[in-house]
Simulated assay, not measured.
Amino acid sequence: MVSRELTKGEELPMELLLLADPSRESVEEYRNRGDCFIAENEQQIIGVYVLLPTRPGTVELVNVAVIEEQHGKGIGKRLVKDAIEEAKKRGYKTIEVGTGNSGIGQLALYQKCGFRIVGVDMDFFVRHYPEDIFENGIQCRDMIRLSQDL
């Protein structure tokens, strides 16, 4: 697996990004303000993440997605670790991430990668998404905010 930043002229892997965030509008908005990185295996895009500067010294990891055929192979963890290293290289002091309360696997992954829960944005997904989102048989209502000092 090789990861690299997408150049501004390259087509965005929208279907892959929409696996992690069902709002095309949100994805396009943060792509315009952030930097998109892809993971490739034999010239096929297998994963993606976006780093979005939010405040001085702080960047947010706003989307991590892996194609379904590659789930369970540790690629998500490698992408998160890559995002952390990229944030360090760019001089950020803090990296943040938000995920849904129903994302049990994602919550575990981020904590395994050194993130700590710092807050909950109650009803975030109810307020910002027109349709109910369900994952693991749980309604995704709240945004769990996590952070890591670099």
Rank of each mutant, 00 (worst) to 15 (best):
S23P: 02
N101A: 06
K77R: 12
L52C: 11
V50E: 07
G98F: 06
D142Y: 08
L17H: 00
C36A: 12
K93S: 11
Q106N: 14
F115L: 05
Y110R: 04
Q139R: 12
K89C: 06
E86M: 03
S102G: 15
G119S: 01
L61I: 14
P53E: 04
R4C: 09
S23L: 07
K112H: 11
C113E: 05
K81P: 08
G137N: 09
G72F: 05
E5G: 09
E40R: 05
V2W: 04
E10A: 00
A39G: 08
G114N: 07
E28V: 00
I46M: 01
E131G: 04
E5D: 05
I138R: 04
Y30C: 02
E25Y: 04
L18V: 00
I138C: 10
G72R: 05
M1R: 03
S147D: 12
R141K: 13
I133F: 07
G76W: 02
K73R: 12
M122L: 15
D21S: 07
L16S: 03
P56A: 08
L109Y: 02
G74P: 01
P13D: 01
E29C: 00
L109M: 04
V118C: 13
E42D: 09
E11F: 01
F125A: 13
G119Y: 00
L18I: 02
D123A: 09
S147N: 10
L17C: 03
G103F: 10
D21C: 10
N101D: 10
Y129D: 10
C140R: 04
A39P: 04
G103H: 13
